[in-house]
């Protein structure tokens, strides 16, 4: 464990908490893509199957369980409890366009052709694009509430910090995991445009509004 990975995990946790608190306090999930949240639930479920087979550390187990539990909680809040506030008219990204290609890629490019390994690889590929429905929703409505922006920013920081973690591990531990690194790079790049808007607008107290 290094500082980049710890901070990355914590900003990931922060993002999830921000989202859950926003939905709970405002009793509304307006502006949030349920499609992205479903994809994240799929990501954690398929990646953390190793909870059943491998023990790494108490920290690792605890965080995995938290990520799985909170992702299902978010999906439940959006599709059941606060269903009436869900923005389904704008949340129209077709998730099969992400699930099918990432499944295919996982079958083609993986470390080992076993069920658990292919599901892990699929989860890495899917996570790299899982935020697209959310970014699509923001671009469709042309704006995001600042709380939604903070959520996206924390999530983007998590990916950025993981990149630093991999650089660190490459030099310090001679460790690298190419599938995760390439997918992580793609994922971080997807946030760049948003980062720019966040820093130039939201941090100056303005609402995140896309140029017309």
């Amino acid at each position: 464990m290094n500082i980049f990975r710890l901070l990355g995990d914590l900003s990931h946790l922060l993002a999830i908490i921000i989202l859950l608190l926003k939905i709970w306090k405002t009793r509304s999930c307006a502006g949030i893509s349920g499609k992205s949240q479903i994809l994240f639930a799929i990501v954690y479920t398929t990646r953390y199957l190793d909870l059943l087979t491998t023990y790494i550390s108490a920290y690792n187990t605890f965080m995995k369980i938290i990520f799985i539990a909170t992702s299902y909680t978010t999906v439940f809040l959006m599709y059941v409890k606060f269903k009436a506030t869900y923005d389904h008219n704008h949340d129209t990204f077709r998730i099969e366009f992400l699930i099918l290609p990432t499944s295919l890629l996982a079958l083609l490019i993986n470390h080992e052709f076993t069920i658990i390994e292919i599901l892990w690889t699929f989860s890495i590929y899917l996570e790299s694009v899982a935020i697209l429905p959310q970014l699509f929703l923001v671009s469709k409505t042309g704006e995001a509430e600042s709380i939604t922006s903070h959520y996206l920013f924390a999530l983007g920081c998590y990916r950025g910090l993981y990149l630093l973690n991999w650089v660190y591990r490459y030099y310090a531990e001679n460790y690298y995991e190419l599938i995760a690194i390439v997918a992580g790079l793609v994922q971080t790049i997807l946030y760049c445009d948003f980062f720019y808007l966040y820093i130039t607008k939201v941090l100056k107290g303005k609402k995140l509004q896309l140029p017309a």
Partner: peptide, 10 residues
């Protein structure tokens, strides 16, 4: 070196 299959990251 500690490469695959040791997956300790989240």
């Amino acid at each position: 070196h500690p490469h695959y299959p040791f997956k300790d990251e989240l």
